[in-house]
Design a protein around this nucleic acid. Structure first.
Lengths: 197, 197, 197, 197
DNA sequence: GATGAATGAGTCTTCATTCAT
DNA sequence: CATGAATGAAGACTCATTCAT
C-alpha cells in the first residue's frame, strides 16, 4: 500500500514539474497540476499538505534527480578529464531538457531568496554539486593532471557558478540553438580553471 | 511639469524596488508599492499602465542603474588590472546592496523565462555587461597584460556567469557575511581566466 | 449529478433575474446575484465563465421562457380571434410581472445595440415572436377571419412593435395601474390592423 | 458671459451624445466626454454637478431637439396626409442618424425604469410626441380624411409604440440597410390605423 | 481513497470626484 | 476659468483550501 502512495506522489510531482515549467511557479495552480497528472484536485491535497508543501517536495525531488544523474555520469568514468567531460555532458543534456529544468530551477531560486525551506533544499543541492567537482579536482590533483595549487572549495564554487550562469545566459539568449556553444564555453572554462598542465 | 512627472515615476520605481525586494515579484501588490512610495494606489495606475508595465519599467530602470554604476567604476581606472578590480568592486558593493538587488534580479530572471518583454530587457543588460568586460579584456591584450589567445566573447560570457552564479550561491548560503569571500573568489577566478602573464 | 448542476444554474439565473430587475444591468454585481441566490460569490463563477456569460445566459433563458409562455397560451386556443386574445393576455400578464420583465428586457435591448451576442439572442427572440403572430394571421386568413391582403411579415413586425412600444410607454407612465388600459390599446390595435371583416 | 457658458455646455452635450452613442451609457466616462469635447476633465465638472447631471441634461437636450425637429417637419406641411408623411420622414431620417440616436435613447429608456429624473424627462418627451400625432389626427378628422371613430389618445400611443418598436427591431436586425423597409412599414401601419376612407 | 462543489480572502483595475495650482 | 494630479471606493475575477458525498 505504501508503494502505491509513493507512486501516486511521484505521478503528481512529475505533473507538477511539467506544469511549473510551462506556467511558472506563481501562475501554476493546483488545478493545473491535477490536470497534468490526470487526477482530481482533491488528490493533490490528499498527498500533500498544501501548495507550498507540494512545490517544496518538487524542488527536493527534482534536485535530487539532477544530482543522481550527474553523479552517475561522473562515476561511470575513470580518469579526471573523462569525469570532467562526463560532468559537463550530464549537465548540458539537450536544449529541451535544460530549458524545462532551468525554468523551474530559476523559479525556485527566486523563491528561495525569501523562503527558508527552499533555501535549505537548494543549499543541500549546491553542497552535492560542490562535492562532485571537489572529488574530480582532488582526483585530478592526486593523479597530477590538475594544478596542485587549486583551492578545491573555491574552484567548486566557481565551477558551479559557471554552470548556472551560462545556462541562465543561454536561456535569456535569443537563440536557443546556441546550446552547444555554451556547453563548449563551459568545458573550456573548466579546463582553463583547473590549469591543465 | 514634465520634470515633476519624471520624479514621481522615479519615486514609484524606487518604492517598487524596495517592495519587490522585500516581498518578491509575485507577492508584491500595487497597494504595497503605493504604500512604500507614500502615495495612494491610484497614483501608481496614473503613471503606469498596469502592474506588468510598472515592473518591466522597474527592470529597465534598475539594470540601467547597475550598468551605469559598473561602467563609471571601470572608466575611472586606467590600467587593465585596475579596471578589472574596479569592476569586481562595483559588483560586490555590500552585502545589503547585493542582497537587495539580486533578490529582485532573480525574480526578474525567473519571470523572463516566460515573458518576452523581460527577456529582452535582460538580454540588453547582458550585452552591456559583456561590453564592459570585453573592453577590459581587449585593452589588457593590447597592453600585453592578458593572454592574447583569449576568446573575448567567450570570456565575457564566462565572466558574467561567474558573477551571477557566485552571487546566487552567496544568496543561498547560510552565512551572509561570506560576501567578502565570494568577492575574492570572483576576482581570483577572473585573473585565472585571463591568464595573467 | 448533471441534474444538480442544471438546477444550480437555474437557481442562479432566477436570482440574476431578480437582481437585474431590481438594480439594473449595469448596477448589478455578481455579489448581489450570489446574495439573491443565497450562495457565495464563488459559486456564480463556478457555473458561469464571467459576468457577461452569466447575463447572456440570463437573456437566453428569460426570452425562451417568455416565448414558451406565449406559444403555450396561443396553442391552447382554437380560433384565430381566441388565439389573438390569448396572445395579448399572455403578454400583458400582470403589472408586477410585466414591470419586472420589461425592466430587464429594456436593459438587454440597450446592451444589444453594442453587443453582438445579445443582439443575436434578441434577434432569435424576435423571430420566434414574429412566428407566433404570423401563424395566427395566416390561420385567420385561411379561415376568412382576417383580411387577405395583409402582408404577414410586415404585420408581424408591426404587432411586435406595438407590444414593445406600448409596454415601454406603460413603464414610463406615472400610473402603473394603467396596465389594463394599455392592454386594451394593444388588442384593439391588433384588431384594427388585421381589418376584421 | 452667460452666452459663452451656454455654448460651452452645448459643446459638452454634443460631445456627450457622441460618446454615449459610441460607448454606451454605462461605459462612457467623463474623461471620454471631455476628450470628445476637446476639453479637460475638470471643465465637465465645472459646468455640470456630476455625471448623472450631465447625462440627464443630455437626455433633455436630445429629446427636445428631436421633438423640435419633428414639430418643424409637420408644421411645414398643410394637409393631414402630408403632415403624416412628413412626421414619418422626420423620424426615419437616415440609418446613421437613427442608429446614433436610438442607441442613446434605448440607454436612457433602460435607465429611466429605475431613475425618476430620467423617467420624467422621457414622459414629457412622450407627451410632446403624442401631441404631434394628436394634432394630426384631429386635423384629419376635422377635414374628413381620417376615421371619426378613432380614439385620439389611444391612437397616439399606438403610433408612438409603432415608431419605437419598429426602430428597435431595425436596430436589432442583421441588416442595417432595411431602414427604408421599416420606414415603409411604419407609414403603412399609420395609414391602416387611421383608416383612410 | 477520490471527487468536485462551495467558500471567501486577496488583487488588479476603473473612474467619479476633489482640489491645489 | 481651466487643468490634471491624486484619491479611494467598488467590483470582477482567481484560486487555495475545505468538506460532504
Amino acid at each position: 500500500m505504501k508503494k502505491k502512495a509513493e507512486e501516486r506522489k511521484n505521478q503528481i510531482l512529475r505533473a507538477a514539474f511539467q506544469a511549473v515549467s510551462t506556467q511558472g511557479y506563481n501562475s501554476v495552480t493546483l488545478q493545473s497540476i491535477a490536470d497534468h497528472a490526470g487526477v482530481s484536485k482533491g488528490v493533490v491535497h490528499y498527498y500533500f499538505d498544501n501548495k507550498e508543501d507540494t512545490l517544496s517536495q518538487l524542488l527536493e525531488w527534482i534536485t535530487n534527480k539532477i544530482y543522481k544523474h550527474e553523479l552517475k555520469a561522473v562515476d561511470s568514468e575513470s580518469t579526471p578529464l573523462d569525469k570532467l567531460k562526463a560532468y559537463v555532458n550530464s549537465i548540458f543534456v539537450s536544449p529541451e531538457e535544460n530549458e524545462k529544468f532551468y525554468k523551474v530551477y530559476l523559479d525556485f531560486l527566486s523563491q528561495a531568496t525569501r523562503n527558508e525551506t527552499y533555501r535549505k533544499i537548494n543549499h543541500s543541492f549546491y553542497q552535492q554539486c560542490w562535492g562532485i567537482t571537489s572529488n574530480i579536482i582532488i582526483f585530478g590533483q592526486e593523479t597530477g593532471v590538475f594544478d596542485q595549487s587549486i583551492d578545491v572549495e573555491k574552484a567548486s564554487k566557481t565551477m558551479r557558478s559557471i554552470v548556472d550562469g551560462l545556462l541562465i545566459q543561454w536561456l535569456m539568449s535569443e537563440d536557443i540553438n546556441s546550446h552547444e556553444y555554451y556547453k563548449e564555453i563551459c568545458y573550456q572554462s573548466f579546463l582553463k580553471h583547473l590549469k591543465i598542465t
